[in-house]
Design a protein around this nucleic acid. Structure first.
Lengths: 192, 192
DNA sequence: AAGCTAGCGGAGGGTTGCCTCCGTTTGCAA
DNA sequence: TTGCAAACGGAGGCAACCCTCCGCTAGCTT
């Protein structure tokens, strides 16, 4: 369960001809932009326009709105999951904190997508698995080292921080401070 | 600055004739339901339908979608703000915690609305003031009593918890546990 | 009880977005 | 180079929603 096989079917539909692949990437990029700007209800025609392709091309690649969401989401999760590897040589607590920072950053871009995908999606579920596979060991390690309290689960942490990504933070330093408060809550009573 | 006068202009448009008032209330109630179910982009025609009034009536009462949002939002905030008074005789920390619990409950119902209103709204701003007027003293009191760390602001707390309201919690007890973690983060280093 | 007027409701015109369909283009293999 | 399948793109039909407008209804006042 490395996660590599889990959601690979999503990428199976990735086209092979050069122009097709180019359009596919352009659509993904445009969709990322448009949804970030206008929310999950943004017009698909706008996405196609911004990608510089016809609306027909969009629908061939992503027959439904949800298909587009899923492709976008999977892409994002992949990157996050992969990034856990870089942190192996940090001390347990530092590694966890660093990864959670990335977690917030990644998730923040697409709160709208998640909103849409929560409802029974195979892909969404396997992405969750992928994130947990990446993050849970880091937390266990921190717990084993006594840096994180024992009475909470990784799931608790994810939810606590997911929330933060939704909130609007005009200045990024406030976001960091608030994240700091939340992280203090993870500490065992003695090690503050 | 009791807050009573701040947003009263919003209520100025409240109708006086019996049938009109009835319809107004029905619209508010229907809107609360519909927006909770279908998000902020829900159809206004559906709102009117569910309220059992004509679409014309809806538009007379709330010329724009935003007007409806605002009315809904103000209503919610009012209740929350008022509820702070009940908690005066609890110990500082307990009072704060109790109020924050309510805060979460109230805000959760209308995350979608807030999303829409954040962008430059007079009403939104005065509602914020109202919430802060209700909550900030409770937090100061808790800080004075040494129950909350001194290096954070009420605004930090609001944002930390606002996030939580966005997250989906299948079981309510997990929400409480996660809220507990967040609240632990508010404590001064010594008093855990 | 009778009139006045605030308020009602929904038909309908306009806009926008969704998605299909098919004639045209273009990459790739032989 | 040539042929053919894969891919393109956008016109256009359909559906949903927005919002205005105006003839009708029913509270309130005297």
């Amino acid at each position: 369960m490395t996660g590599a096989g889990q959601a690979s079917d999503v990428f199976a539909r990735r086209p092979k001809r050069a122009d097709a692949r180019r359009n596919y990437e352009a659509l993904i990029a445009a969709a990322r932009e448009v949804f970030a700007e206008a929310g999950a209800a943004a017009s698909l025609e706008e996405v196609a326009r911004r990608a510089g392709v016809g609306i027909g091309t969009l629908y061939r690649n992503f027959p439904t709105r949800r298909d587009l969401f899923e492709a976008l989401y999977v892409e994002e999760v992949r990157e996050l999951s992969r990034s856990a590897a870089d942190l192996g040589d940090l001390p347990p607590w530092d590694a966890l904190v660093a990864w959670l920072h990335r977690f917030i950053g990644y998730v923040a871009t697409k709160r709208a997508l998640a909103e849409e995908l929560v409802h029974d999606s195979e892909v969404f579920r396997s992405c969750r698995t992928e994130i947990y596979t990446a993050g849970e060991p880091m937390m266990r390690r921190a717990q084993a080292a006594g840096a994180v309290r024992d009475d909470i689960s990784f799931d608790d942490v994810v939810r606590l921080l997911s929330g933060l990504t939704m909130a609007q933070f005009p200045q990024p330093e406030q976001r960091d401070r608030v994240l700091g408060i939340a992280l203090d809550g993870l500490r065992p009573p003695t090690s503050r």
